[in-house]
């Protein structure tokens, strides 16, 4: 395959970036998108040009480290992570635009690498169940109804990649946050902190500069783990009832 790549290049957080065009040939449709970028970097290095910086780690779709805006779609045209996107999803001769996640809460570090530590700070503010090591009761002392356990699991599959924010026209992080609220709120162990959790996380989210949610639904459509939109409703429900949970 022969491709034209238009890639965002930006030397560092404070530098001004711009799109650069590269031609690449001899790409196999079996390669993953990131392997195609690896190959571009090998060629750039051989020519003495600075390779393109991009994040990735597990390359099996679970760590959440990779994430690119590919021709205007978060993680590209398939419902999966960038690392699990393969070149067979493209056609010979295509022009592909590659940009970093765009959100002021996710500042660009270099080229296609962004800083998603805002997500960590949201979790820090309440995305946990306070259970000190060694203080846990016997696991079977609290049964969890299977439907609740299943819903908690579905929400807990979030990989924190940030595609929801990237795809959202408002750059909102509500799907990420809603997934955590739903995961912990569905479980009996999560009830004690249910009210304070949602309030603290929402306050942090808004303070980090994410946009507000207008329920457009692009987040859920872009989510590689197919987290459904109802976690946002659940978050709002918990927020509305947070006073009750705090009593």
């Amino acid at each position: 395959m022969r491709l034209t790549l238009k890639i965002w290049r930006q030397a560092n957080a404070s530098a001004k970036g711009s799109m650069h065009t590269y031609e690449i040939d001899g790409i196999s449709p079996e390669e993953s998108f990131l392997e195609m970028l690896d190959e571009l970097n090998e060629q750039l290095t051989a020519k003495g040009e600075d390779p393109v910086a991009f994040d990735s780690d597990c390359r099996e779709g679970i760590c959440g480290m990779c994430g690119l805006m590919i021709s205007g779609q978060a993680h590209g045209p398939e419902v999966t992570t960038t690392c699990q996107l393969h070149m067979r999803s493209f056609n010979d001769g295509d022009t592909i635009t590659v940009e970093p996640w765009r959100a002021d809460a996710f500042p660009v570090v270099k080229d296609l690498v962004v800083d998603r530590s805002a997500f960590d700070r949201i979790i820090q503010s309440g995305g946990f169940i306070s259970a000190n090591t060694g203080s846990a009761p016997e696991a079977h002392s609290t049964p969890v109804p299977k439907p609740k356990a299943d819903r908690a699991f579905d929400a807990a599959t979030c990989i924190g990649c940030g595609a929801c924010v990237a795809a959202c026209p408002n750059a909102s992080g509500m799907l990420f946050m809603g997934a955590k609220i739903t995961h912990l709120g569905e479980l009996p162990q999560g009830q004690a902190e249910r009210g304070s959790r949602v309030r603290a996380m929402v306050a942090t989210h808004d303070g980090e500069g994410f946009g507000g949610c207008t329920n457009i639904g692009e987040c859920a459509a872009a989510c590689p783990k197919e987290i459904p939109l109802d976690v946002i409703s659940q978050l709002n429900n918990d927020l509305r009832n947070s006073g009750k949970y705090l009593r």
Binding site: I129, A136, P145, K146, A149, F153, Q189
Partner: peptide, 22 residues
């Protein structure tokens, strides 16, 4: 055995049976 207790207390959503047990 302590690991399972600890993780359940943290909210790890292990697979459960219909009776609600692990």
């Amino acid at each position: 055995v302590n690991i399972i207790d600890q993780c359940v207390a943290q909210g790890v959503p292990f697979a459960r049976e219909y009776g609600g047990l692990l």
